[in-house]
Design a protein around this nucleic acid. Structure first.
Lengths: 139, 139
DNA sequence: GCTGAATTGCAACAAAGTTGCATCTACTAT
DNA sequence: ATAGTAGATGCAACTTTGTTGCAATTCAGC
């Protein structure tokens, strides 16, 4: 069992949640990646090492998201992407999305600011900034 | 024929594009709304007044977007929303999305700023800011 | 009105995600 | 160590959102 798998298992156990092999495999894989990946990519990646139903993957990802082990990112291709939360994310966070290869990276250190108030009666709970352009490899 | 329908027709004709009843109806409807609406909402709305195939609606919306009569917005429910462009939008624009009723409004006047550079080799072409929270009606 | 290219409708398809239910498994109490 | 049980998984079927191919129709210029 790899280091990351041990780490993933430990993360889940320490929160008093049920440890299952799917959860460990998926979380370990997301910890290994330093970016937001799609359901499809995860499925491909785990196909050889771990037998896993499509539906279970959806459910595990949803669960990991609910428990704040990972977070979701929407993008233009209408598919969710998931990324492991290695530390507590601030309420505001930013992403970069490459318009060619559609890779999404998190720009964690970026501070988001806006200079005008919302319309009357509106309350902000979360701010998401997406910078779109070309990544280093696609430039 | 309503005022907005005349206006929609005029907008299309003045650009030298082909005027069809679907385009006029859809653009007029989007001009009437002051917000980003889904394909589904448009379909419902036009059902009674105008016979219209689902596919045609998708194609007209895509066309209106290509010709810059409207613009697209992604949101968490994985469905595109469309909003009429009443003026030329700046390269950076912001949206507010209600986490309860999922309505999206454009915060056109909002200026987006970020305080750190992108990773080396990355080029930004567009910035999208989404503020999430509760709208006036859902508060 | 006629013509050709653009637009539309229909049917079939595809991707991403969801639901219901029977089976299996991780944890708890003994 | 074992059994019981709540919770997790697998499977099949379904839904939503959007796309593609092609034949029929319509718009705009003559």
């Amino acid at each position: 069992m790899s280091n990351l798998q041990k780490q993933a298992e430990e993360m889940i156990r320490r929160r008093g949640e049920r440890v299952t092999s799917s959860r460990v495999q998926i979380l370990a894989m997301l910890l290994a990646e330093q970016r937001a990946v799609t359901h499809h990519e995860i499925e491909e990646r785990l196909r050889n090492t771990h037998r896993l139903d499509r539906v279970t993957l959806y459910r595990v990802l949803e669960w990991l998201n609910d428990k704040c082990f990972v977070h979701k990112v929407v993008s233009d291709d209408r598919a969710w992407r998931f990324r492991a939360n290695t530390h507590i994310y601030p309420h505001q966070h930013a992403h970069f999305e490459c318009m060619r290869c559609t890779t999404v990276i998190c720009l964690d250190e970026m501070k988001v600011e806006y200079d005008r108030p919302l319309p009357a009666g509106y309350r902000s709970q979360e701010i998401e900034l997406t910078v779109k352009g070309l990544c280093a490899e696609c430039t």
